[in-house]
């Protein structure tokens, strides 16, 4: 019995508490509005349901947000991920459309590899600007954010390129072992990232560089290499997300693919409790954050509110998150919390 309050206190201070509470609250609202919201059904060996939809549609944001988490942990930011996603989809679709054997598995694999290789190059460019030339990350990646859509247009010749390749489309709409491929890919990347970051020393070194770059340099940390690596990783994640988005519609839309996804990704990272000031980061928090954003997008139409107002609700979330992270509000809340248990104690005594 004596342990329970201690455990509760620990839980109350757990950094993931509030993101999870928010997600559960959002799901609860949906259940109230539509009691069958959580139900899942099996059809032709495929799992269907609102929860599956949320996870599947949230997969691209989750991927982009994973890369963004590491970038933000180094005190950086990557605004170009949306453009990179568009370029990735464009490269893949144009290759498939031009290939003699447009529907084959081999073509799809070559197309995806080509697209991801392009993304690595783009990530190297971003990383070069930030880590070697020392340009502020927000400016450095703004270059590719604006120029990138132009590049994608060049690749697709300004047309929406449609393709007919079931393997490629599978990335967006396919199923393996009852679950959508998109979910499996995103979770796979998530697990792999978490494994690499936390089982090696990479996570600690990223945090050290993010908290105090100069002290890290003097301790012999190869800060430049680390920063460069995270930008490449972010671009790679964005490229994978771009392939999913293109696969979903079997088309590359240079103008709209991955539009504003960088903002969703940043929001997911912040909701997950990683500070924009760099330093300590939480991949699990980002996962919850990405799911929260997608659930929000699903909730709005589910409540009968026009989907166009989605941005308004996101804005409200941003404001709430900012308020909760503001030192002044936190202080005010802490003072209140401090007085509350005291009076409770007095009541008992």
């Amino acid at each position: 019995m004596a342990e329970t309050p201690a455990r509760l206190a620990l839980l109350r201070r757990h950094p993931l508490l509030w993101p999870v509470v928010a997600l559960v609250a959002l799901l609860a609202i949906n259940v109230v509005a539509n009691p069958g919201f959580l139900s899942l059904r099996m059809q032709d060996g495929h799992l269907y349901g609102n929860l599956v939809d949320i996870a599947r549609n949230g997969a691209p944001v989750l991927l982009v947000a994973l890369g963004m988490t590491l970038v933000i942990a180094t005190r950086g930011i990557d605004l170009s991920v949306g453009a990179v996603a568009a370029i990735s989809g464009a490269v893949a679709c144009v290759y498939i459309a031009g290939a003699p054997d447009g529907g084959s598995v081999g073509t799809a694999i070559v197309a995806c590899s080509l697209a991801l290789a392009t993304c690595v190059a783009l990530g190297l460019w971003n990383g070069f600007l930030v880590s070697v030339l020392g340009i502020q990350p927000i400016i450095a990646t703004l270059v590719l954010m604006t120029a990138g859509r132009g590049l994608a247009m060049l690749v697709t010749d300004g047309q929406i390129t449609t393709v007919n390749n079931s393997t490629f489309a599978g990335l967006g709409v396919g199923f393996v072992a009852t679950l959508p491929i998109a979910i499996l890919v995103a979770l796979g990347v998530f697990a792999l990232t978490a494994l690499v970051v936390r089982r090696t020393a990479l996570g600690m070194l990223i945090e050290a560089v993010g908290i105090n770059p100069e002290a890290s340099r003097l301790a012999g940390v190869r800060a430049r290499t680390i920063i460069w690596t995270v930008y490449v990783f972010a671009a790679l994640c964005a490229g994978l997300a771009g392939l999913m988005i293109a696969g979903n519609t079997s088309a590359a839309d240079a103008n709209n693919a991955g539009l504003w996804i960088e903002l969703d990704a940043i929001l997911a990272v912040v909701i997950g409790g990683t500070s924009l000031a760099g330093g300590r980061f939480s991949l699990a928090g980002t996962l919850v954050g990405a799911l929260f954003i997608q659930t929000l997008a699903t909730t709005i139409p589910n409540l009968g509110i026009p989907a166009q107002t989605n941005y308004l609700f996101k804005a409200v979330v941003v404001i709430l998150v900012c308020l909760l992270q503001s030192p002044r509000v936190r202080h005010a809340l802490r003072v209140r919390r401090r007085t509350l248990p005291m009076t409770a104690k007095a009541g008992v005594a």
């Binding site: 020393a201 600690m204 070194l205 945090e207 050290a208 908290i211 105090n212 002290a215 890290s216 301790a219 012999g220 940390v221 190869r222 330093g279 300590r280």
Partner: peptide
């Protein structure tokens, strides 16, 4: 490195 633990701070150079 203020936000990291004593252990991480101590092992930073060796790990690097």
């Amino acid at each position: 490195i203020e936000d990291l633990s004593v252990a991480d701070n101590m092992l930073l150079a060796m790990q690097a």
